[in-house]
């Protein structure tokens, strides 16, 4: 074939491929318009004042419903979650959110010129920014301690190279009173089975705080196993307590941990079930939810936990009794990252 013939083929192919590529990009960008339109039958959302301390019990969450308030921080009465939703008048958008006692932590994307970065923004009870901190990867979990003093978040740090399909995590803890940040729990000393432990493949995620502003629980993963650890903010140590525990969430009375457990025999892409662990006896109770849950559960009171499952608009919120009885019930569509205030 002549060089002219080859170049003609190449040119024709470039034009055809460019047309396909352009069509794909245009199709995906048209999504923005569709998602800014509220769906008929969707929840009614109005903009209004949102505060992190209120007279009545409120459920604060990231609204996933299509429309002008998509992804904004939104509240609804905790007693009647399917009732009217109020979105923040300032249009505060969070990927992940949590709040306690007048302190909120909002994990956000920051759109840069050459890449997106992420940050954790600390909010006061009126949702004013008190400070922000760089998050080194894609936000995954967020928690505030019951007193509102400490905040923690977990981020995925993606592959390092072409072969990098192993994800690592960074769990950070912030003292909002002093501004002192521990960027990675890997700086803490690990005591595993009674001995000092170190390994390059240590990852932490899913921090949950105790009421004493000193202790916390989290997941530690190393050598293909996960552990529940109890951490001490003062001595900067974590100690393993139990195996096969991910994304722990401490009950309001501090006696139990709700968590996702990897159950043998389940499919690799849906391997978890919700369990509750009694910290005094280490007795495990499977909850009545029969689907795989990939979330850090949130206790709505001492007897129920709330969690997200994949839904038509990203995620829906469900609740289930914490003692293994009853059954799971949907409480809110198109919502994620719940926090009870």
């Amino acid at each position: 074939m002549t060089i002219r013939g080859k170049l003609t083929i190449l040119l024709a192919a470039v034009l055809a491929l460019a047309a396909v590529a352009t069509a794909a990009v245009l199709h995906a960008s048209a999504r923005a318009d569709r998602r800014d339109q509220a769906r008929p039958g969707g929840p009614a959302i109005t903009a209004g004042p949102v505060r992190l301390t209120s007279g009545t019990r409120e459920l604060v969450f990231r609204n996933m419903a299509w429309g002008p308030h998509r992804d904004e921080l939104t509240t609804t009465p905790a007693a009647r979650p399917s009732g009217p939703r109020t979105a923040t008048a300032t249009g505060l958008k969070c990927l992940r959110f949590h709040a306690r006692s007048g302190t909120g932590i909002c994990l956000q994307a920051v759109h840069g010129t050459l890449s997106d970065t992420y940050r954790a923004t600390v909010l006061d009870s009126a949702l004013h920014e008190k400070g922000h901190y760089a998050v080194p990867g894609i936000p995954s979990r967020a928690r505030v301690s019951p007193s509102g003093r400490y905040a923690a978040w977990t981020a995925f740090v993606g592959g390092d190279s072409y072969a990098g399909t192993n994800f690592s995590t960074r769990a950070a803890i912030l003292d909002t009173a002093t501004g002192v940040l521990t960027p990675s729990l890997e700086a803490y000393a690990i005591v595993k089975d009674g001995h000092r432990y170190r390994a390059p493949d240590v990852n932490f995620w899913g921090v949950t705080f105790a009421a004493d502003d000193r202790h916390f629980y989290a997941t530690l993963a190393t050598h293909g196993k996960t552990y529940l650890v109890r951490g001490d903010l003062r001595t900067r140590t974590v100690t393993t307590l139990h195996t096969n525990v991910e994304c722990p969430s401490l009950s309001p009375d501090g006696t139990r941990i709700a968590y996702k457990k990897r159950v043998p025999g389940l499919p690799a892409d849906a391997p978890w079930r919700l369990y509750v662990l009694d910290l005094a006896t280490l007795h495990e109770t499977p909850l009545a939810e029969t689907r795989s849950v990939d979330d850090q559960a949130e206790w709505s009171d001492d007897r129920h936990v709330t969690y997200a499952l994949p839904g038509d608009y990203g995620a829906d919120l469900y609740t289930v009794p914490a003692d293994g009885t009853g059954s799971a019930r949907e409480i809110l569509t198109a919502a994620v990252s719940p926090a009870y205030l």
């Binding site: 794909a24 990009v25 199709h27 995906a28 960008s29 999504r31």
Partner: peptide, 8 residues
């Protein structure tokens, strides 16, 4: 340029 444009 897109919204959730992973397919793109």
């Amino acid at each position: 340029w897109t919204v959730d444009g992973y397919d793109a």
